[in-house]
């Protein structure tokens, strides 16, 4: 229900761009097009219809995945996006795995061994991780691994293999190599965030009575920490992580432009430069759709993890 409202609102915002941001006709035609031709084109594209009719048409098409033709390239937007989507999704996926796989264990470690030298080092480093802007870390990585050491490629996806309509970089050596720098760049911020969140939650849980009672029952630390404490830690962590994964996809833009990664973000940046409104609108709607879907998955996960929520609806 809420998701439908969110999607509707985003659709409305995306659509209003058509009306209020620049005049599309100006961007489609050359300077020497006569006024007569411009009016004809306007009529043919339905730009003179009332607002509601236009919006209705837009939403109906959007639901079917049709966002019209790109003003600049004269190809369906849906095709362009479908072509770019695998790149972004693969990048976001790898970054998500990285930030979870490293962030959670580090968070647990720093919570359990709060006073060790290593935890303090990790915490200090993470502060740097949180405060550095993405483009800077990206450029630093390129400088170090790409230019100085010449170990890793600094732009593009490398060789890709087509699996049906999905082009993947996972199956070639150069594709995997190209993934490393951008995914680290993208993951760094999320990683430190997840780590700090897990640490804070874990410290909170370790203070609770049931942890103390578990210790008083003589359970070994390993069981107390990982079976009882960690599982309880994850309940709130899931929410934040879910939201963050959405933003990984959405904010891959910066990383993609730094690494010239041929994903949706780069497409979007170019579209802004060209005032290619159909692409911008489609991108907005799609990102909103991802957010809504991820939130739904988070809710379902919640349900699976926490028995208290299940009981309420029995």
């Amino acid at each position: 229900m809420q998701s439908v409202i969110v999607m509707f609102t985003v659709g409305l915002i995306a659509f209003s761009m058509f009306r209020f941001v620049g005049d599309p006709i100006n961007n489609m035609v050359g300077q020497d097009t006569s006024e007569q031709e411009r009016i004809e084109l306007r009529e043919r594209l339905g730009l003179n219809d009332p607002f509601l009719v236009q919006f209705g048409r837009f939403s109906l098409n959007a639901v079917q995945g049709d966002f019209g033709l790109s003003y600049k390239y004269r190809v369906p937007v849906s095709e362009m996006i479908a072509e770019r989507m695998p790149a972004t999704l693969e990048l976001a996926f790898v970054a998500a795995i990285l930030s979870l796989a490293i962030g959670i264990p580090l968070g647990v470690y720093t919570a359990l061994k709060r006073h060790s030298f290593l935890s303090k080092l990790i915490m200090t480093t993470s502060l740097i991780g949180v405060s550095l802007p993405t483009f800077l870390t990206g450029i630093m990585l390129i400088l170090f691994f790409g230019v100085v050491l010449r170990w890793l490629p600094t732009f593009g996806r490398g060789d890709v293999i087509e699996l049906g309509s999905w082009s993947t970089g996972f199956l070639t050596a150069s594709g995997l190599k190209s993934l490393i720098l951008p995914s680290i760049t993208l993951a760094l911020f999320q990683l430190t965030l997840i780590m700090r969140l897990v640490r804070a939650e874990m410290l909170e849980v370790l203070r609770t009575d049931f942890v103390k009672f578990a210790k008083a029952r003589g359970l070994p630390n390993r069981l107390v920490n990982f079976k009882h404490a960690l599982k309880n830690t994850l309940v709130p962590v899931i929410t934040i992580t879910g939201l963050q994964l959405g933003s990984l996809i959405a904010f891959a833009i910066i990383t993609e432009s730094v690494f010239q990664w041929p994903g949706m973000g780069l497409l979007f940046i170019q579209a802004i430069a060209d005032v290619d409104i159909p692409i911008m609108a489609a991108y907005l709607v799609l990102i909103a759709f991802f957010f809504v879907m991820i939130n739904m998955i988070v809710d379902i996960l919640y349900y699976a993890v926490d028995p208290r929520l299940r009981a309420d609806n029995e």
Partner: peptide
């Protein structure tokens, strides 16, 4: 020794048990 030879009961039963198990 804890749990095996000395058992412990705490004040608040609402928070003494792991809610997820």
């Amino acid at each position: 020794i804890r749990g095996r030879r000395i058992g412990m009961i705490f004040q608040d039963p609402l928070t003494s048990l792991d809610p997820l198990q």
